[in-house]
């Protein structure tokens, strides 16, 4: 276990060490103290290490993560785990807007609420939100899965491509080209798998509804002009 206190060393040192193959090859467990909302903590990791951050983080925490597990005990700022490729990012508090933006792979778990545009342009990752998600979540999401145990804000799944959304609570409104679709066996398996992966054994997998793309906006049609 290696402890890094951000009150004592600059962010640059922390990230440089987390990028250094010699250090991450030797030390599998890292702990970060006093993050105090600083931006860009533990970005660009590319090794199977675990980084536990004691407190709140600012923008882009765990951005572009590969292979690593990053766990935040507090709230996370804008763009949490943006463009994550693989690995696992867990936040125990809330996540600000654009959580998991354009993430290609891996698992993002938010135990609190996620704000607006959660999973925007999602490209293949899985996102599990224990609380609710804000408006315009999964905007333009292309691939991957978003599972929301609470409610979803307005405009859910606007201009959705092939990503699949599961919501247990109330959906305030669906965005353009997003429709409710029947839950098949594969969807029930997906929900169970996502809940298990996120470690949420107390959530009933039965209560989820599926939302996906109606694929009406996939090609330009002048009749759709009102939806653009």
């Amino acid at each position: 276990m290696q402890t890094v206190d951000l009150d004592a060393v600059p962010l640059r040192d922390l990230n440089a060490r987390l990028h250094d193959p010699a250090q991450v090859g030797r030390i599998a467990d890292w702990r970060v103290l006093h993050p105090k909302g600083r931006h860009n903590i533990a970005v660009g990791l590319d090794a199977p290490v675990t980084v536990r951050i004691d407190g709140h983080v600012g923008y882009y925490c765990a951005g572009m993560n590969q292979h690593a597990t990053v766990e935040v005990s507090g709230h996370a700022g804008v763009g949490l785990a943006e463009n994550m490729m693989s690995g696992r990012v867990v936040v125990h508090g809330n996540a600000s807007q654009s959580a998991g933006a354009t993430a290609h792979g891996g698992l993002l778990v938010i135990h609190g609420d996620a704000a607006a545009r959660c999973a925007i342009s999602l490209k293949g990752a899985d996102i599990v939100v224990r609380g609710s998600v804000g408006p315009m979540s999964a905007f333009m999401a292309q691939a991957g899965r978003l599972l929301v145990c609470g409610d979803a804000g307005d405009g859910l799944g606007d201009s959705l491509y092939e990503a699949v959304l599961y919501v247990a609570g109330r959906v305030k409104g669906l965005g353009a080209d997003c429709v409710e679709q029947p839950m098949e066996d594969a969807d029930r398996a997906s929900v169970a798998e996502l809940l298990a992966a996120a470690g949420l054994d107390d959530v009933d997998p039965a209560g989820f509804r599926r939302y996906g793309s109606a694929r009406e906006l996939y090609t330009f049609k002048i009749e759709n002009v009102g939806a653009y």
């Binding site: 105090k36 909302g37 600083r38 407190g55 709140h56 600012g58 923008y59 507090g74 709230h75 700022g77 508090g93 809330n94 600000s96 807007q97 609420d113 704000a115 607006a116 804000g134 408006p135 804000g153 307005d154």
Partner: peptide, 22 residues
């Protein structure tokens, strides 16, 4: 603008924290 500005307030641990809706 960012949560970090609120993090030092007394009692923030039990505060209701949310992002204002559009």
């Amino acid at each position: 603008s960012e949560y970090r500005a609120l993090a030092g307030l007394p009692g923030v641990e039990t505060a209701r924290v949310w992002e204002p809706e559009p």
